[in-house]
Design a protein around this nucleic acid. Structure first.
Lengths: 170, 170
DNA sequence: TGCCTCATGTAACCAGTTACATGATTAC
DNA sequence: GTAATCATGTAACTGGTTACATGAGGCA
C-alpha cells in the first residue's frame, strides 16, 4: 500500500491533478518509488472514494485538481509512525552473483567488473541530479537531500563491493 | 522471470523436489530471492512443461525429484551472460524518509535512529549466519560469501547513513 | 491408532506493467 | 488546421501473497 502514501505525501505540499502527480513521480520519486500512469489514476480514484483526498477544482479537459483531506493527512502520519516498513530483500544482482559458478572464472570476473562500472555510472547520474536541484531550506529539501545521500552512499558501497568481489574470483 | 532462474540455479548442484527446493529457498536464498510454496510448485510445473527440467524419479507421497536438462543449463547461462539485470529501485524506507516533514522533528529523529538500530540488528543476524555456515572451497561457497559480504556492507552503510541522517534533523 | 512431517496443488486476491483508447485545449 | 501537449481512463497480463485443501508415509 505504499503508492497511496506516496500520493498522499506529495499532496501535502501542493494541490495537484493526476497528470501533475505523474510528472512529480517521474522527477522527484523516480529513484525511490516509481509509478505508472495507469496506476496513479486508478489509485487517485480509490483515494477519493475513501475520502482521503477530494477534488478541489475541476479544470479544462476534465482536469481534476486533488487536495489531501484531514483524514488523508492522519492516514499518512499513521503510516509513518505506527506501521513497520516491510524490508525489501529481492535483488536480481545478488541472485546472479549467487549462481556465477555456472560460467567460467573469466566470465564471472567480467560480470563483476561490469557491475562496478554500472554502479559508478549511477553514482555519477545522482551527482548530476544533486547539482541540478535547487535546494532551499524547507523540510522537503532536508529529507530530499537525505534520500539522495543514501543513493550516493549506496552506489559507492556497491561499486567497492563489486571491485572487491572481482578480486576474489581467482 | 527471476524465480525460474533461481530454481534452475539450485538444480545445477543437486536433484531436488519442490519440497526440497522450498527449504533451500528458506535457507540459502531467503535474503536474496524469497519465494512462496505455491509459487515454487507452479513454476516447477511450467519449467517441466517447457523442458528446462525433467522428473528424474518419482518417490513416495507423489514426490517428484527434478533434474535440470541441457536446455535448462543453457537457459541459465544465457540469463547470466546475455541479459541485463533490471535494477531494483523501490524502497519503502526511503519513501518514508522523503515524507518525514509531516511529523515533528523529534518523531523524525527517532524514526531515523530506530532505522539505524534495525540495520544493526540485521547486520548481527548476518554475522551469525556467516559463522553458522560451513564454508568449503567450492564455487557455491565463493559466490555465497560474496553475496553475504554484500549484505554485511549494505547494512553497515545503511546504519551509518541513518545515524548521519538523524544528526541532520535539527 | 494417531500425530507429525512430507508433499503437492488450487483459488482469490493485490500490486505493478504494457498497451490501447479517447478526447479537449493550446500554440503555431 | 494541425500538431503537440494536457488529461483521464480501461483491459489484459505477470509476478507475488495468503489461505485453503488434500492425502500419503513414518514413527511412537
Amino acid at each position: 500500500m505504499s503508492l497511496r502514501h506516496a500520493l498522499l505525501g506529495l499532496l501535502v505540499d501542493r494541490t495537484a491533478s493526476g497528470y501533475d502527480l505523474l510528472k512529480l513521480f517521474d522527477t522527484s520519486l523516480a529513484n525511490v518509488w516509481p509509478a505508472t500512469q495507469s496506476q496513479i489514476y486508478a489509485e487517485l480514484n480509490k483515494l477519493a472514494d475513501t475520502g482521503l483526498i477530494t477534488i478541489a477544482t475541476e479544470g479544462p479537459r476534465g482536469r481534476k485538481q486533488y487536495t489531501i483531506t484531514g483524514e488523508g493527512l492522519a492516514e499518512l502520519r499513521h503510516w509513518l509512525t505506527e506501521t513497520e516498513p516491510q524490508r525489501n530483500v529481492r535483488s536480481e544482482v545478488l541472485l546472479r552473483v549467487f549462481f556465477l559458478g555456472v560460467v567460467s572464472r573469466d566470465q564471472a570476473r567480467s560480470h563483476l567488473t561490469e557491475l562496478a562500472a554500472g554502479f559508478t555510472q549511477e553514482e555519477n547520474a545522482l551527482r548530476e541530479l544533486e547539482s541540478d536541484i535547487e535546494w532551499d531550506e524547507g523540510d522537503l529539501s532536508v529529507y530530499g537531500r537525505i534520500a539522495l545521500e543514501y543513493g550516493l552512499r549506496f552506489n559507492a558501497m556497491r561499486r567497492e563491493w563489486a571491485e572487491w568481489a572481482a578480486g576474489q574470483v581467482r
